[in-house]
Write a protein that binds this DNA or RNA. Structure first.
Length: 651
RNA sequence: GCCUCCAUAGCUCAACUGGAUAGAGCACCGCUCUUCUAAAGCGGAUGUUGCAGGUUCGAGUCCUGCUGGAGGUACCA
């Protein structure tokens, strides 16, 4: 049973007698901010007192007279301006612990009104090298899906793979012009990836070459403007005018800086090609940019050769992706990529046109919506469809097939506006029953404070990062467990290494951008998965050493004992597992569960320091502590499991 | 220009959506292993929550303005 929910349900009738918005007030009953105030606190009296014109303290007293917390709270007090502090009854707590001990679900009740959720996550582009930025959607989406499922919802996961985009035009062009047949024979994906990078580089080169003079001119112009503005500033005396000029100066400086950065990156791209081996090839393929677009267009129109190549490339690319997913332990119910929707796009566009939701503007078919300056384009003027079109088709397909109550898109926050438009368009189209939600997450930044990009050579790809995480964990695993077999050591290293990597993404508020740090990704100390996993392994050690049988512990429990304060503290935290899951689902924030597990583990390690199991003063206390250990190990295992992180018996 | 998000300890981040004295980890300095795994525990300090106002019993959180950063902004995804 969820203690918070139980307290709230006891408050509800009393609050209803004082206010019409009792349900809202329930949100003001929450875990106590400080243990000295008890376990929970109700902050309802302050706003309510104001509303009904009573002193909050009097009202709090009145509420407490009317309420029945019999058997649930042993102590209540009104404090400060009108806080109601609540302390759980120890007998009630012990009963809850016993109930959780006997329950596979650790006392977490299933929701009474299960819904169907589609969780759309990961969605990488195949055939493009994956980097560390791609891991975020995958682990966050996976965790949200698992948690939704655990609390009793029906969950359908779908990986909306990018398997139909321009990158295939590039690879096809590369295949036709630069293929190394031997390399392709022995390592097809590696060769395709090389072709992708090469074509990308040549396109960037020609793009830079074509635009660099323009950028130089712009820089000159901006520089001139800046001089003028500065002269103006010096000649102006009136305050508001000076302020205005200052603002323009700073805006101009900003633009100038941006242009200079562009210039630098152009220069880099040009030198990289001209001083390298690519120079002659660059000259031989001056029209590579348009050529690639033509290859892509041909593919989309069903050109036999390109389609055959695409069919040849795709399985290998997908298999390469699956290797990463297998290592991450992530799987999907569906992997309906963009190509899957290809033959449905025309119908979507026709429908929008027929119903008058879209009209042609500047040659493109556009959906105009009130809240936006720019329309959502669903067909380009060259007749090609876009991401938006595919997304609309996906909405329709999912509605036909799955009839979900909600659809969550776990995607980078840079696509915020795209999704706002998409959801509006979907509602316009008639999909008003489903709740669409963009579960956005922050960008992974490089150490320069700019979005993380794979730079050639000096950054590890995703696979390499996983290797490093495992090999670093392996060193410590060998050091710590010299007697274990090599196989076991490797298994431990994999669980610890991968778990640590995932935990970095999960433990942060998903909304924040975060700075990629190699050290942080591979850290095994502090607030990391390793810390949590270690508590589990410790418990397994205790169970081994004491010769206890976990099944027997659960089947024949003794009453829990609180011989020390820390045991009660641990008890309170353990029964809050269910609250932590609720907290995650309010805003789909897995870091709420990480924070819970971390705090729980901190308490647990203090418990271990203070409370010997083996040398407990009495047999009954020893049993009680074994029961704590069992509950703890299952809470960690389940909690980490919901985050997609495994545990090991020994480490 | 317009729109969205962000600014918290030296660093990386939390803060249960308006609650009581803003918390962790990292890094740094000590201490604790013949006693269930030291991948642990204990102790040590650091803050005008970017700036200026406002709203109220109460603001890191809400509103206004400013400064600084990131992203988006008609045919990329």
């Amino acid at each position: 049973m969820n203690a918070l929910a139980e307290i709230r349900s006891r408050f509800l009738p009393v609050l209803e007698s004082h206010s019409d918005s009792a349900t809202e007030l329930l949100g003001m009953i929450r875990p106590a901010g400080d243990p000295k105030f008890g376990d929970y606190q109700a902050n309802v009296a302050m706003p309510l007192g104001k509303k009904v014109g009573k002193s909050p303290r009097d009202l709090a007293a009145e509420i407490m007279d009317a309420i029945s917390l019999e058997g649930l709270c042993s102590n209540t007090e009104v404090a400060g301006p009108g806080f109601i502090n609540l302390t759980l009854d120890n007998a009630w707590l012990k009963n809850q612990l016993l109930a959780s001990l006997a329950d596979d679900r650790l006392g977490v009740e299933q929701v009474t009104n299960p819904k169907t959720y589609i969780v759309d996550f990961s969605s990488p582009n195949v055939a493009k090298p994956m980097h560390v930025g791609h891991i975020r959607s995958t682990v966050i989406g996976d965790a949200i899906a698992k948690i939704l499922g655990f609390v009793g919802h029906k969950v359908i996961t779908d990986n909306h793979v990018g398997d139909w985009g321009t990158q295939f035009g590039m690879i096809i062009y590369g295949y036709k012009n630069f293929l190394d047949p031997a390399a392709y024979e022995s390592e097809p994906v590696g060769e395709l990836s090389r072709l992708y990078r090469k074509v990308r580089q040549l396109i960037d080169y020609h793009g830079a070459l074509a635009n660099i003079d323009g950028v130089r001119t712009e820089i000159d112009t901006l520089g001139g403007q800046l001089e003028q503005l500065k002269a103006q500033q010096a000649a102006t005396e009136e305050k508001s005018a000076v302020k205005k000029i200052k603002k323009e100066i700073s805006a101009t400086q900003k633009r100038l800086k941006a242009k200079q950065e562009t210039l630098e990156s152009f220069e880099k791209k040009i030198t990289a090609v001209e001083t390298g081996e690519l120079a002659t090839e660059a000259n031989a393929h001056p029209e590579i940019g348009t050529a690639v677009l033509l290859e892509t267009a041909a593919l989309h129109k069903g050109d036999a050769q390109n389609l055959a190549l695409w069919n040849e490339f795709l399985p290998a690319c997908r298999e390469d992706m699956q290797k990463i997913y297998r290592r991450l332990g992530v799987s999907f119910d569906h992997e309906l990529g963009e190509s899957f929707y290809n033959d449905q796009l025309q119908a979507v566009v026709d429908d929008f046109e027929a119903k008058g939701f879209a009209r042609t503007s500047d040659g493109a078919l556009c959906v105009f919506m009130n809240d936006y300056d720019t329309p959502m384009i669903i067909r380009k003027k060259d007749g090609a469809f876009l991401y938006s079109t595919t997304d609309l088709a996906t909405i329709k397909y999912r509605d036909d097939e799955f009839d979900a109550d909600a659809c969550l898109y776990v995607v980078d926050h840079r696509q915020h506006e795209h999704f706002e438009k998409l959801f509006d368009a979907a509602r316009l189209w008639g999909y008003t029953e489903t709740e669409y939600k963009h579960v956005a997450f922050g960008t992974v930044m490089g150490d320069d404070g700019k979005p993380f990009k794979t730079r050639d050579g000096d950054t590890v790809g995703l696979g390499g990062l996983l290797d490093d995480a495992e090999s670093k964990a392996l060193k410590i695993a060998i050091d710590q467990n010299p007697d274990l077999s090599e196989e076991r050591q490797k298994e431990i290293a994999s669980v610890i290494g991968i778990g640590g990597l995932k935990y970095v993404d999960l433990s942060q508020n998903r909304a924040s951008d975060y700075e990629f740090s190699y050290e942080k990704m591979l850290a095994l100390k502090g607030n990391t998965a390793t810390y949590l996993q270690f508590s589990y392994a410790r418990i397994q050690g205790i169970i081994r050493k004491t010769g206890a049988d976990p099944t027997a512990i659960r089947k024949n429990p003794v009453p829990f004992e609180f011989a020390t304060d820390i045991e009660r503290e641990l008890a309170v935290k353990l029964i809050r597992f269910s609250e932590a899951l609720d907290d995650v689902l309010v805003e789909y924030k897995p870091n709420m569960l990480c924070a819970y597990l971390f705090e729980l583990t901190q308490i647990f390690f203090r418990f271990l320091e203070q409370c010997s199991v083996k040398d407990a003063q009495s047999e009954s206390l020893k049993q009680s502590r074994l029961q704590f250990c069992d509950l703890m190990s299952r809470t960690i295992q389940t909690g980490l499991g919901l985050l997609g992180i495994e545990v090991v018996e020994q480490m």
